[in-house]
Design a protein around this nucleic acid. Structure first.
Lengths: 209, 209
DNA sequence: TAGATTGTTAATCGATTAACAATC
DNA sequence: TAGATTGTTAATCGATTAACAATC
């Protein structure tokens, strides 16, 4: 039974399902039951079946789920087949690390340009991605209409830059600065990657016994 | 009323409280009520008071909370005053970015060494942190007994490396590789920073209207 | 057919919110 | 003192788990 409103709890489990199914797929596993997937992921079979039922019926009684099929379905739910265009703003160490290591294509994002203010970087290329001047940003966005921007810029620039980008039509922010971005423009989404939060959670855990 | 068992939901909100209190503190705000903090953080005042009550009584009726005091209390709860020692394993782009940009000291971690296999990197220094050969790892850990390791190594090395480090006595992992680490040794904690999960969440959101 | 496993409904559990007496 | 706001108890809401008929 498809659900109207999907809870955040479910949404946040989807990428993890996708990751585990990818893993099974790459190992050549053909079918899996909710109970064995649950064992692998350390969650209940019930939860898996409940979660999936929000989006459709992907299994078969007595058999379980076809790994390749379910992987494709969840990928589709996550929108990896939309071919979203993405730009990277800030090509310092972190931006560079992402461009160098992160497989944007594998999750359906197309990147061909990053932007920075440093004359040393402008004109260079990282893994086929051109680093352009921030002066070109507006023209580029107007011409190629990317939907998502990755922000790896200094903290104090993040919010005003986001505001500018929203005006230009950017609808998603993968934000690596340590500020929480916001807007009153509807249909704009932020994913803040707060490194410090996860390290503090770890600190909390190792600090008590 | 202090709680026995603190739920994960509460634990995961603590770093965010800390971040916001830090922000208020740096702006010179002296006191804040649960309702104005709630407005700033977009959660209910009730939730804030419930969360804090797991750890003690930090407010005052009719007044609210002293920002500096509450910040210190939450910092203490998170263990930022433990002076945990930390090492970085892998000094590629991401490791480099972290060493260059991330303020470990501000959250109470001491770092003086990173480890890598690349001869080009071994012997160099990033922001005062020495990059050493992986061959020195065992001796270093035995001598200085760091508690936390940051993993920014290739995927296939992550799990065996973690096993080795656990044997050496490492109890916390800040894991940037795209694999979920595990162990049956008790008292060892993992914080996986799965970049791809947050980007997929963003993808999900921008993909439906 | 018999066994396995689904999707879904119902039961349980836990987390969030509301209410309020206590008190600064 | 009067107003504000806490910490906590009780009420509500939502998420997780259990159970099971349906069926491959």
């Amino acid at each position: 039974m498809r659900k109207e409103r999907i809870s955040d709890a479910v949404i946040h489990r989807l990428p993890r399902y996708y990751r585990h199914l990818n893993d099974l797929y790459s190992k050549g596993v053909v079918r899996i039951s909710s109970s064995s997937l649950g064992a692998k992921m350390d969650i209940t079979a019930s939860q898996i079946r409940q979660d999936l039922s929000c989006f459709g019926e992907f299994g078969q009684q007595g058999y379980g789920y076809n790994v390749s099929e379910l992987r494709a379905e969840i990928g589709h739910i996550l929108g990896i087949d939309h071919g979203h265009r993405l730009i990277v703003i800030g090509a310092g160490h972190l931006g560079h690390a992402l461009l160098q290591n992160f497989d944007f294509q594998a999750v359906g994002f197309q990147v061909d340009s990053a932007f920075d203010v440093s004359p040393d970087l402008i004109g260079t290329e990282i893994r086929g991605v051109a680093i352009r001047s921030m002066d070109e940003l507006a023209d580029y966005v107007a011409a190629f209409r990317p939907e998502v921007a990755v922000l790896t810029v200094p903290q104090d620039q993040a919010q005003p830059l986001a505001a500018r980008l929203i005006d230009m039509g950017i609808r998603g922010f993968w934000n690596f600065t340590n500020v929480e971005l916001s807007t009153d423009v509807p249909g704009v989404f932020f994913e803040d990657v707060h490194f410090v939060d996860t390290l503090l959670t770890l600190s909390y855990r190792i600090s008590r016994q």
